[in-house]
Design a protein around this nucleic acid. Sequence first.
DNA 1: CTACGAGCTAGAGCAGGGTCTAGATCAAGT
DNA 2: ACTTGATCTAGACCCTGCTCTAGCTCGTAG
Lengths: 140, 140
Amino acid sequence: MATTEAPAEPLSIGEVAERTGLSVHALRFYEREGMLVGPVQRTAGGRRRYTTVDVEWLLICVKLRESGMPLADLKHFAELVRHGPGNEAERLQLLDAHQQRVEAQIQALEECRSIIAWKVGIYAENLARGEAGGLWDPTG
Amino acid sequence: MATTEAPAEPLSIGEVAERTGLSVHALRFYEREGMLVGPVQRTAGGRRRYTTVDVEWLLICVKLRESGMPLADLKHFAELVRHGPGNEAERLQLLDAHQQRVEAQIQALEECRSIIAWKVGIYAENLARGEAGGLWDPTG
DNA sequence: CTACGAGCTAGAGCAGGGTCTAGATCAAGT
DNA sequence: ACTTGATCTAGACCCTGCTCTAGCTCGTAG
């Protein structure tokens, strides 16, 4: 993945916020909480300079969070990566467990979807044939 | 739906907790917060007695919550149902909006899933051929 | 030089969604 | 009658995951 990429200018926190969708607050928060793999570089004046690698990691974080990984797990994963080679099995296990949770959640959502679709169908149908139908039960 | 069902014994809060997966605390909380359509019946001694209809509504609540509907929306929906006929269009709109959020969420999860699957694949592969591979980049 | 926006830190605050506690009551078994 | 376990109410508390504030500094454009 880190093959043919130009080193590229490091980015400010605001720029990283833009491209990750995280707020600058969240970025600082993640850093404080140890969700990053390495320390972020700073300018002479103390401003953060994010490298491409940093941003890539953050993008992964965003995906993992979006798919429901708790910050604690994310932190754990970051720790494993930070401590370098030797714990790959554990990393794999963590990701794998998460993957299974994601699968399960997709399943659950699909089930919900079909229930909702069914309800929506009933409402639409009843509305279409003039809201007179007497079968508005208290179950919604 | 409420066609050929036996009236069945009303259930205690604990029994309802069991069959909905909600805690008794959550059940009382939902009730306080107005997430139920009608008031729950009580015994002479003040204990709650849930009817089949109550439980069905709760099961719907669980599904809606599972699929990410905020309590505020659920409450709104309950209010609409409580106020009986005349607001079906609004109920439909609410459900429909939720349905779209669910669709979007499924999409997002599927994207995450494939990213994770890809990472898992890389780890598995590298582990399989002896953890010596030198390409453990800091991106995880 | 000076302004003004972006960044900095530490820490307080907030929203959502319950969970837990205390102290009392109910109900069922022995 | 007594013990035990489930419920009751009101309200305090908790956890997660940020978000916001205050007061200060950087750095770039006029």
